[in-house]
């Protein structure tokens, strides 16, 4: 049986899709059979981030409506073994996403995969609720700023009440906090909330901290999940996150302000 992980946030633009792509890739690189599903019907992006936009023929809605088989819609990742992508529909009405249909797809995938990563759309409407409904674990992506923290708080409330586990009174969805776009320099100068501020309000286990990094934008535009770029701080931070998801104890990195040394200033090294 696969573990179903939803990547969600409430707020848009905080890095859900980037994180879903990086974490799914990271899990696959560690030898886990992984599928990542885009639930953002009408605003699909995951295929771009994963660099497989030219190979999309069928999508999740086609499968749910019986117009295509699951194997026809699944796209095998070119770089990573064990990794498949199930894209969302860009044209269909998002109401076509039915709970019964999603359940059936997840059940089928569960037989074959170790991890199912669900990339949730922003907001708290139908699509977002469906993406989280069947989840065993949730990664709540949060930026260190007040509106993102409040939206994450809202999502955590929904995870505790509007999921299958909550409705069946099963053990609750395991919640993980993933802080993205963290800039220690701006935290020090007071522009950003500190790590402790965010953790105090959301009061859930921190699974990772991704520093603000040029590598992320570069990775998105190239369609290569940033976790492949192990020279970059963001790539390493996502790799740490995946290790923690797998239960390993990894010390936190990239959360402290670092003065640039003379050499790195001269040669422009350090953060890339």
């Amino acid at each position: 049986m696969a573990k179903i992980i939803v990547v969600t946030s409430g707020k848009g633009g905080v890095g859900k899709t980037t994180s879903a792509a990086a974490i799914a890739t990271g899990l696959a690189l560690r030898g886990n059979k992984t599928v990542v599903i885009d639930f953002d019907v009408g605003l699909r992006n995951l295929d771009l981030i994963m660099g497989c936009e030219r190979r999309v023929v069928y999508d999740l809605i086609n499968v749910i409506q019986g117009e295509a088989g699951l194997n026809q819609a699944l796209i095998r990742d070119k770089r990573t073994e064990n990794l498949h992508i199930l894209p969302a529909s860009q044209t269909r009405d998002k109401e076509a996403l039915t709970p019964e249909g999603v359940e059936k797809v997840l059940e089928t995938l569960s037989q074959e995969y170790d991890f199912i990563v669900c990339d949730s759309p922003a907001g708290i409407e139908h699509g977002a609720q469906l993406a989280m409904y069947f989840a065993d674990e949730a990664i709540v992506v949060t930026n260190p700023e007040v509106s993102s923290v409040r939206d994450s708080d809202r999502i955590l409330g929904l995870l505790a009440s509007k999921t299958r586990r909550a409705e069946r009174s099963e053990p609750p969805v395991k919640e993980h906090l993933l802080i993205t776009r963290y800039d220690p320099n701006r935290v020090t100068s007071g522009d950003m909330l500190t790590l402790d501020d965010v953790r105090e309000i959301l009061a859930i286990n921190l699974v990772g901290l991704i520093p603000e990094s040029e590598a992320v934008l570069r990775a998105s535009n190239q369609g290569v999940p940033v976790v492949h770029d192990m020279d970059s701080d963001a790539g390493q931070a996502y790799a740490d996150t995946v290790s923690r998801l797998l239960g390993e104890d990894v010390p936190l990195r990239f959360h402290e302000y670092q003065k640039k040394g003379l050499l790195s200033r001269m040669f422009g090294g350090g953060r890339r």
């Binding site: 708290i124 409040r150 939206d151 708080d153 809202r154 955590l156 409330g157 929904l158 505790a160 009061a203």
Partner: peptide
């Protein structure tokens, strides 16, 4: 009523 836990945004 006694409520144990965090009361989150929207609740």
């Amino acid at each position: 009523r006694i409520y144990r836990g965090t009361v989150r945004s929207g609740q």
